[in-house]
Computed example of a mutant assay.
Amino acid sequence: MTSRTSPGSGRRRLDPGRAGRWFVLPAAALLLFFFAYPLGASLWQSLFRTEGGVTSFVGLGQYERLFSDPLIAKSLLNAGLILIVQVPLMMALAVGLAYLLNQSWLRWRSGFRLLTFLPAVTTLVAYAVVFRVLLATDGGAVNQMLGVLGVAPIDWLNNEWWARVSVIAAVTWRWTGYNMVIILAGLQSIPPELYEAARVDGAGRWQTFWSVVLPQLRPVLIFTGITSTIGALQLFDENFILTGGGPNDATLTPVLYLYKVGFRQFDFGYASAIAWMLVLITAIIAVVQFRVMREKP
């Protein structure tokens, strides 16, 4: 009696694991070529110095140079000031706007949300150029409005103090709506039962906001806080277009200094060391923020 075999018994079965590796291979190759290799190359390049067309291995010499460079200290100070002032201000505005736009009694909520988010879809260069025109000392729209109110023109972009204010104002205008949308999504995910329980307990609006809303928003606030901090430490476009890092390096940031060292002085080894210093500082601040803001067990 002849035994029957199933139609597919003679075919080779496809290993799901092997097939999955083939699907992952293109993404892994792109990640290796465009991320891992440049990362390793910049770290290797930071160990060399080029002088007079001669490249020599200096080990950690470029990193030792960071501690004696006054512009590194100045750029970190400027970034720290922007971080301390701009990020809390932007986060407070984003939370306030999100909470307001989440209220059912507010009319035309969709339109207000769109208007608030519009700055986030403008290109960095375009909005920085617009701010440069608006803040021009002679003929700028801001100084013209101040003149109507009887206020003397302010040299927004050529005074150290006001240049920092201008950069902070521009960055806050650009990114508040972006963070507001993320926080608004977090607000809409809060169960209505929590509001009802707070209302039954006699909690007012402020008590509900402080005891219910903010604790529920903790994961969202951690995310937006960390991303905003990283963005503040990596500022480049606004400073480059508005002030060029001036006046007197008052708005010079680490990334802008890295650009000047690498693409104007062509000292790519030192520029790579600056980049790795910035990566380390950003990672440390992000870890500290996460541990401070994370929910306690």
Rank of each mutant, 00 (worst) to 15 (best):
L89K: 04
M90N: 06
L71P: 04
A79L: 08
G80F: 08
L71Q: 11
A92L: 15
L83D: 09
E64R: 03
V85C: 07
V95K: 06
G96K: 05
Q86D: 13
M91E: 05
G80N: 11
G96P: 00
L77Y: 10
L77V: 12
P88F: 03
R65I: 15
M90K: 08
D69R: 06
E64F: 07
L93V: 04
K74G: 00
S75A: 15
L89G: 03
L71E: 14
A94M: 08
P88N: 11
P88M: 11
M90D: 03
A94P: 07
A73H: 10
M90W: 00
L71M: 12
Y63R: 06
N78C: 13
L76H: 01
I72E: 09
I72N: 06
S75P: 10
I82M: 12
V85W: 02
A92W: 01
I84Y: 00
Y63M: 04
D69F: 06
M91Q: 08
A73Y: 06
E64D: 13
L81D: 03
D69A: 06
A92D: 01
S68E: 14
I82L: 13
L77M: 12
V95T: 10
L76S: 04
L97H: 00
I84A: 14
L97I: 14
P70V: 10
V85E: 04
A94V: 10
L83K: 01
M90P: 00
R65D: 13
L81N: 09
L89I: 06
N78M: 12
Q86N: 11
A98S: 10
L76W: 02
N78E: 14
Y63F: 15
Y63A: 08
L71F: 05
A94H: 04
P70S: 08
I72K: 04
A73Q: 11
L77C: 08
V87S: 02
V85H: 03
V95C: 06
L83P: 01
L97R: 00
G96C: 10
V85R: 07
I82K: 02
P88E: 11
V87K: 00
L83N: 09
D69Q: 07
A92K: 09
L66D: 09
G80C: 13
A92I: 15
R65W: 13
P88C: 14
D69I: 07
R65P: 03
A73W: 12
G96N: 06
A79V: 14
R65M: 13
L93H: 03
L76G: 02
